[in-house]
């Protein structure tokens, strides 16, 4: 029975990785830019969710506006508002940091450095503004545990896994079946010819950032509900792990992100089941190294050919 429990946990972890990895992969697929700040956008999402939830249910720690909404209603408001606000953070980042560089036609390296630094600014800005005390996310839904043949299934785990699969299906639909998705794929193919076809480049890029950051916000809420301790550096490591997931799956491909996310979840839980849990990161990063070594483009990735 333990094995089924582990599989369930792996699916839950994998869902978080997949949700964040989708954001990496969307932005990379369109802009060929690794948005290193994405893990921190996830962290910002979790904090936004925290402040919204606390303010709505009137607990201490938020802004005291005298609201005492019931937890279920608070959750119903928190989810969409957090996704919108987190998307705004992502778009702001794109407009202030990445777009000026793109307009100048700067070397990709400079954009990558900017992204890394933007992540550090978000992390440490949070630390400086809110202090090092950890925040406790309020319980918005009652935990229900179903015991199915010895496997403890909580409602939250089911919600997380279902959310990841729905988001995947939705994004896959958007990217492969809609006009906007077609424009996204077009931009990744040729950034210079696409504006000539009458496609608004900046709008499409903003839509990409909205989708990616919105999903990071969703992941932030779900993560905060599952592991209710928030701290400024929570986004860094999980962001890197999600990034590994995206790369392992083949960055730029939606299916790759979801497969990579679940694969990483299974690897981590598998390692913890056999070895001491401190070795988890070692294995996760070693797997990344080996996969990149053997298959530099990831599982679903296609090698880019450069013309001489």
């Amino acid at each position: 029975m333990e094995i089924f429990q582990n599989i369930l946990n792996a699916l839950q972890f994998g869902s978080f990785y997949a949700l964040i990895a989708l954001g990496y992969t969307l932005v990379y697929g369109v802009l060929r830019l690794i948005n290193f700040a994405h893990g921190d956008i996830f962290m910002v999402g979790a904090y936004i969710a925290y402040f919204l939830a606390v303010t709505l249910i009137g607990a201490t720690g938020g802004f005291n506006v005298g609201l005492h909404v019931s937890p279920a209603v608070a959750l119903a408001i928190t989810v969409p508002v957090t996704m919108i606000l987190t998307a705004l953070v992502g778009v702001t980042l794109e407009r202030t940091a990445y777009r000026p560089l793109r307009r100048k036609g700067a070397n990709r390296l400079y954009v990558v450095i900017t992204a890394l630094m933007a992540g550090l600014v978000l992390e440490n800005g949070n630390l400086a503004l809110l202090g090092a005390t950890r925040k406790r996310f309020p319980d918005l839904i009652d935990k229900v545990v179903w015991n199915i043949g010895g496997v403890a299934v909580t409602n939250l785990k089911v919600v997380v896994i279902v959310a990841a699969i729905i988001v995947f299906a939705m994004l896959q639909f958007i990217v492969t079946r809609t006009k906007i998705g077609m424009a996204m794929r077009g931009i990744s193919y040729d950034k210079f010819a696409i504006p000539l076809m009458g496609i608004p480049l900046d709008t499409i890029i903003v839509v990409t950032f909205v989708l990616g950051s919105g999903m990071a916000g969703l992941a932030g809420i779900l993560f905060a509900m599952s592991y209710p301790i928030l701290e400024p550096y929570m986004g860094a490591l999980i962001g890197w792990k999600a990034f590994i997931a995206a790369v392992v799956g083949g960055i730029g491909d939606i299916r790759g992100a979801i497969v990579g996310g679940f694969l990483l979840g299974f690897i981590e839980i598998g390692v913890v089941a056999v070895f001491p849990s401190t070795l988890r990161d070692l294995f996760a990063f070693s797997v990344l190294l080996i996969i990149l070594w053997l298959r530099p483009t990831g599982l679903f990735g296609v090698a880019e050919t450069t013309k001489i």
């Binding site: 890394l116 630094m117 933007a118 550090l120 600014v121 440490n124 400086a128």
Partner: peptide, 11 residues
């Protein structure tokens, strides 16, 4: 704040 200023400087 040092760690906010330095990355900002690089940006």
């Amino acid at each position: 704040w040092k760690w906010v200023v330095i990355p900002l400087l690089l940006i």
